[in-house]
Lab assay of single mutants.
Amino acid sequence: DHDVVPEDKFQETLHLKEKEGCPQAFHALLSWLLTQDSTAILDFWRVLFKDYNLERYGRLQPILDSFPKDVDLSQPRKGRKPPAVPKALVPPPRLPTKRKASEEARAAAPAALTPRGTASPGSQLKAKPPKKPESSAEQQRLPLGNGIQTMSASVQRAVAMSSGDVPGARGAVEGILIQQVFESGGSKKCIQVGGEFYTPSKFEDSGSGKNKARSSSGPKPLVRAKGAQGAAPGGGEARLGQQGSVPAPLALPSDPQLHQKNEDECAVCRDGGELICCDGCPRAFHLACLSPPLREIPSGTWRCSSCLQATVQEVQPRAEEPRPQEPPVETPLPPGLRSAGEEVRGPPGEPLAGMDTTLVYKHLPAPPSAAPLPGLDSSALHPLLCVGPEGQQNLAPGARCGVCGDGTDVLRCTHCAAAFHWRCHFPAGTSRPGTGLRCRSCSGDVTPAPVEGVLAPSPARLAPGPAKDDTASHEPALHRDDLESLLSEHTFDGILQWAIQSMARPAAPFPS
């Protein structure tokens, strides 16, 4: 592969990997390779389809078979030569091979799209000592099968071997295949498990690692696999990028399955594409389908809103127990993405979901129960707010008499603000006073009005108090039968009158 990737590009890729991570280095090298001529790309395919690569990765054979028959990708048995050289000459001794072996032994695996480039050397060096003999053996194999790289107009793939297949390693990572398949204008990513390549439709969760975000852009890794992070704060999961590491605690105790298979379609829109997988259930989501939507993949363990709600429900009964003089119970939860139609709101002032922060849900004790107040519409209280300059209440639009249902020339009671006709409430011909108009209920007259088809109010509507207090003497005590009587009149003013009279009014101040 030294004929494909020059030394300066190799060093530039290593520097970019240390600065921005393996995914960015892979993407940059792939983009550079696509700008080369067809001879360089053909050399790339020839390096990929060597015999030892085909033996190690069985899924490469179907890719090789898909090439046109007129494309010669065979390799000479006596060494490598550029395709432009007409004579089959043995190339001179390859010093770059020693360079590659020494550099890969030092860096474990470079971040390139060629056999030198995919593992994360920093994480491997940190986690190597417990498994040094086995990992050293794996390093000797890295130059042979560490990076199976493929690129063409139909298929483009980048393979990364790992030393996680050490025997006896619980939940060992089998390997990473960062794979971009450009077929019919689409893009897919796969993962390699035990020599087999699994596409998103049959993606397997190998051991402790999972394909957290099938994305090839942005600074985030394709698999949430930063070796420096180790395990999740809650004892979460091992990262795919942690090559040759000792077994780590796999999943939280509440995880239903340690080796679950995540779905390959969004649980909201039932469509495929780039998904984020939940650590607590097999569901996966688009970032845009979450509520609120996320802009980037959160670091650490992530769970959907259903799993978060289940966790909150487990903690909430203990938080609601009476604990005198104790601060509110704080339950730190990872930043969760909410699927459509589901929402768990945190306290005000918290950062938005999706940031690399930890939301704190506070379970406050329930407030003391209070008697429910009568629910009145805002339009129902409008007549009470229509007060004239002299303190006389004006008529609201649409006000109707509670007896006849007519809204023409209605009066407004100064005591309960109900609309009424003087002739309907006082049919006996009582003279109307000039000021202080009161309806039949507030004036103490319980004589029913002779209106055909309208039920008369119940005599129990009024329960006047002592006459010594004029204001308190007109406080009506309405009961269920009074409400039914008012409802039978089918008037809004009657219902409003009952609601206003049912509310307690402050006692009249004593004259000074």
Rank of each mutant, 00 (worst) to 15 (best):
T471W: 13
G405I: 11
S502I: 03
T331Q: 09
T358Y: 15
C304A: 15
L462K: 07
A288Q: 11
P328L: 11
M503V: 04
P335T: 10
Q242C: 11
Y361A: 06
E263D: 06
C413V: 00
A399E: 12
G494H: 04
L258A: 05
R318M: 11
P348E: 13
T471C: 12
G391A: 13
Y361K: 03
C307D: 15
E326K: 07
A284I: 08
C281R: 08
L352F: 08
E321T: 10
L287S: 08
Q309K: 10
P372C: 15
C424E: 02
A456G: 09
C304E: 15
C424F: 03
Q392L: 12
C424G: 02
R461W: 14
V344A: 06
Q243W: 08
A507P: 11
V246E: 11
S485Y: 14
P348S: 08
L411D: 15
V446L: 07
Q313D: 15
C416S: 01
A399L: 07
S254V: 09
P374F: 13
A248H: 11
P347V: 09
R345T: 10
A288N: 11
V315D: 10
P372G: 03
A460M: 13
P511V: 08
R338D: 10
L373C: 14
P347K: 09
Q393M: 14
D445A: 07
D470R: 05
A310V: 10
L308C: 13
V360Q: 00
A251V: 11
G398F: 12
G398P: 10
D469N: 07
R295A: 08
P372E: 06
L385T: 07
G244I: 13
G241S: 11
V403F: 11
D377M: 04
A370N: 11
R438M: 14
C307K: 15
P457T: 12
V410G: 12
H286E: 14
G429F: 13
A417C: 07
R440Q: 09
L290T: 14
I495H: 00
C413Q: 01
A467R: 09
G346W: 13
Q392M: 09
C439V: 02
G434Y: 04
D279N: 06
P457A: 07
R303T: 08
S378E: 04
R432T: 00
P292G: 11
E326R: 10
S369H: 15
M503I: 13
C289R: 10
R270A: 03
C266I: 05
E350Y: 13
D271S: 14
P282E: 07
P509V: 12
G280F: 12
A396Y: 08
C401V: 03
V403N: 13
P348F: 12
P293A: 06
F426S: 05
S379C: 10
A477H: 05
G300M: 15
K261S: 06
P367H: 06
L275R: 09
C277L: 09
P466S: 11
V246P: 11
S512C: 14
S485A: 07
A504C: 05
P334M: 03
L487G: 04
D264E: 08
V410S: 09
H425L: 04
E274L: 04
P397H: 14
L462E: 10
V446I: 09
L384V: 06
L364N: 02
L487Q: 03
H259P: 08
S379Q: 06
E274A: 10
T311W: 11
G402M: 04
H415Q: 11
P332H: 05
H490Y: 14
C289K: 13
G494S: 06
E321D: 13
Q313N: 06
P347Q: 12
P476Q: 11
E326I: 12
A418H: 03
G280I: 09
P347L: 08
T311L: 09
Q392A: 03
I276S: 14
D481V: 03
R423I: 11
S378I: 14
E265Y: 07
V387A: 10
R412G: 09
L411S: 11
A508F: 07
A371E: 09
R303D: 15
T414D: 09
T358L: 11
A248Q: 10
P457N: 06
P448H: 12
C404M: 01
D264K: 15
E390A: 13
D469W: 10
C266N: 03
D409Q: 10
P348H: 10
Q393F: 14
D482K: 00
E390F: 10
G434S: 11
D493G: 03
A370H: 10
C416A: 00
P365I: 13
K468S: 14
Q325I: 11
G453P: 10
E314I: 12
G244Q: 07
L352W: 15
E475M: 05
C442K: 00
L455M: 09
A499V: 08
S488M: 07
F420D: 03
L333A: 06
D469K: 07
P372Q: 06
A508W: 03
R400P: 05
H286L: 04
S502M: 00
P249D: 11
A399N: 00
C442Q: 05
F426C: 03
P253A: 09
A418W: 05
A319S: 10
